[in-house]
């Protein structure tokens, strides 16, 4: 008899606590629903904010980094003397390794017609260090720039590069517009 009483009292307290916890969760859901979005969010680099510090190559949780250099061909000048391809003090205007700026030789140079050359990034070799981006932005049109490649990015809850980016160039964008490629994306 007394045991039954204790049991029903316990059950009553548990029921009350359960309802109040359910209400609390409902409250959280309600509040969160105010700022909710149907979209998925992914990380991306704003190429106009990027200062090519080189941390994209080292801070990403992946090795090599999910950040790669992309080439906006519309903006490229197809120069012979490319600031993104050649070292500033290179010995010769040639494809020899010692003249290349890229540490992994990920940029290939192809002759098209006099005097123009096409530059293509091999993303399997690119480590996202941004050296070519710095060269291209300083001396050329800035057609080379860094982007987070979404076939590689694991979309961490908080991007490790974003946290250490000195120019706050990495932000969350909607997955439907996951890239900020120069040319399509302009500085406003």
């Amino acid at each position: 008899m007394e045991n039954d009483k204790i049991k029903s009292r316990r059950e009553f307290i548990r029921g009350g606590a359960r309802i109040s916890l359910a209400l609390a969760m409902g409250g959280i859901a309600g509040f969160a629903a105010a700022g909710i979005s149907r979209e998925k969010w992914v990380w991306q680099i704003d190429p106009f904010e990027c200062t090519q510090c080189g941390r994209c190559a080292t801070e990403c949780v992946l090795t090599p980094s999910a950040v790669k250099c992309v080439h906006a061909f519309d903006l490229c000048g197809y120069c012979d003397l490319c600031g993104g391809y050649l070292k500033p003090n290179s010995n010769a205007l040639s494809t020899a390794g010692e003249n290349q700026l890229c540490p992994t030789s990920a940029i290939s140079r192809k002759f098209i017609e006099e005097p123009y050359f096409e530059y293509i990034i091999n993303e399997n070799l690119c480590i996202g260090c941004g050296k070519c981006v710095k060269g291209c932005t300083s001396f050329g049109n800035g057609s080379l720039h860094l982007q987070i490649m979404h076939n590689l990015c694991v979309n961490c809850n908080q991007c490790a590069i974003a946290r250490s980016c000195p120019s706050n160039a990495i932000r969350r964008v909607k997955a439907s517009e996951a890239y900020l490629v120069k040319g399509d994306f302009t500085k406003d």
Partner: peptide, 10 residues
């Protein structure tokens, strides 16, 4: 074209 592989879909 500049390749931009899509992220995992919603």
């Amino acid at each position: 074209h500049t390749l931009t592989p899509e992220p995992r879909s919603t």
